[in-house]
Amino acid sequence: MRIAFFVNSIEGETPIYTTTLLALAALGRGHDICYVTPGDFVLRPDDSLMVRALTLPGASYKKAETLHKDLQGDKTVIETIDVADIDVLFLRNDPSLDAAERPWAAQVGTMFGRLAAPRGVLVVNDPDGLAGAQNKLYFQDFPAIVRPTTLISKNIEEIRAFIDDQRKGVIVKPLQGSGGRHVFKITSPKDANLNQIFEAVSGEGYLIVQAFIPEAAEGDIRFFLMNGRPLRREGKYAAFRRVPAKGEIRSNIHANGTPQRVDITPEILAIAETVRPKLIHDGMFLVGLDIVGSKILEINVFTPGGLDNISQMYKTNFSESVIAALEEKIAMRAAYGRSVTNRELNTL
């Protein structure tokens, strides 16, 4: 099986990224891998879709650090590959990272993923589903019972009125974005910093304002779902709690959040079950839920991260389970041919 990982840039990859762990697991199971970036697609006059892919030797690496070192070094080769010769195109880019500096690149994965699918490639997550999830507005299509009370607006007066109704304060963040960038807590519409925060965040477009959930002070839970169901291996769930640093409201690990073990309760499983039908409908193969209390703050469908922390914490190779699931899908396609659609394969 040949797996192509679509990323924002080769230079931006790190040894602890989930993408690196997935590539390591794929090589360990005997598959070929390559990396593709937004500028690497070529649609030729004969309608053949090609990629200029960065390939690694088909070695079985034992450490993600070694794989990453080779990825950044001189052991890689650029090969022009017909997309039809790729079994899986794994879309692992974050569109928000490209939105400001090179907006042309933000939607390349979904655009060319749509062209790759009818050419026989299993594209995960489904590009049609991802096209509708380019920002946090996608989250509003999920059942209201799992969503915090939310306002989406660019009008400061609307935002002030909403804040006035939320006795415990609100969280303000850009509608388009990721990684905890420009996330602020406001306790009152009279907050002296509200105008400055509004100016800083609204420059990126619409704002999303969510009622503050007190349990957020203890951090959120990143919970992985695969094929619409909790990712589980050896009796352990792929989940962990991210505890914010002192004085921080963001629990993101890169913002000095601390990863901790977490027990998955029936309540958390019920939350996951509530969002499962839409995830399956949209062809979302691998996603990360960010849960606080009985609510989901975000659903990460592009580059859900954290498998490095989770795998080390529980001494379990969850990435191998992800690659094994892709193997099953490719085997199913071989058995049933084109009668199984790309979207069906994504969540079977």
Rank of each mutant, 00 (worst) to 15 (best):
A105F: 01
D82N: 15
G180W: 04
R338A: 15
R2C: 09
L130E: 00
A216V: 11
R333T: 04
L27I: 05
L54P: 00
S153E: 14
I163P: 04
V88M: 05
R222A: 11
S311D: 10
D32K: 06
V287F: 07
E327P: 03
N193Q: 14
D141V: 06
K154H: 14
I33A: 05
D128K: 13
G247L: 08
M111S: 11
N227W: 05
A100Y: 11
A324R: 12
W104Y: 12
K62N: 14
A25S: 15
R222S: 10
P214I: 11
K63L: 13
N8T: 03
L22E: 06
F212P: 00
L231F: 11
H68V: 01
A255R: 10
Y336H: 12
T258W: 04
Q312A: 14
G12Y: 07
I171D: 02
G177D: 06
K246H: 11
L21H: 13
T76L: 05
R261P: 08
P230V: 09
G132E: 06
R52E: 01
Q140D: 09
L269S: 09
G179F: 14
G283W: 02
F139R: 00
I159H: 02
P230R: 05
F90K: 01
F302G: 00
N342D: 14
F6K: 00
D46P: 03
I253Y: 12
L91A: 06
D263G: 11
I213Q: 06
N309K: 12
D40L: 05
V292F: 01
I213D: 09
I249T: 13
L345W: 01
N135L: 07
S178T: 08
F212W: 12
V275Y: 04
A211R: 08
E320K: 02
V292W: 01
T150S: 11
R343I: 14
D87S: 15
F198E: 01
A334N: 14
R232Q: 13
I330L: 15
V36M: 09
R2S: 12
Q312H: 15
A84H: 10
L97W: 00
P45R: 14
G73H: 11
Y336K: 13
T14A: 13
G219Y: 01
A59V: 13
A270G: 06
I310S: 03
V287W: 02
V51T: 06
V146W: 06
F112D: 01
D164E: 15
V121Y: 06
A272T: 09
L231S: 01
E11Y: 04
M50K: 03
E298L: 07
L137Q: 11
A106V: 00
L194F: 06
T18G: 05
R233G: 02
A26I: 10
L151Y: 12
T187W: 04
I299E: 01
D282F: 03
P148S: 08
N256V: 09
V83R: 00
E65F: 11
V209W: 00
L91K: 02
I197V: 15
V77M: 06
L24C: 11
Y314S: 10
E327D: 15
L175F: 07
A245D: 09
Q166F: 02
P57H: 06
S188H: 08
P304H: 07
F5S: 04
D128N: 13
T258A: 12
T265P: 02
G205Y: 10
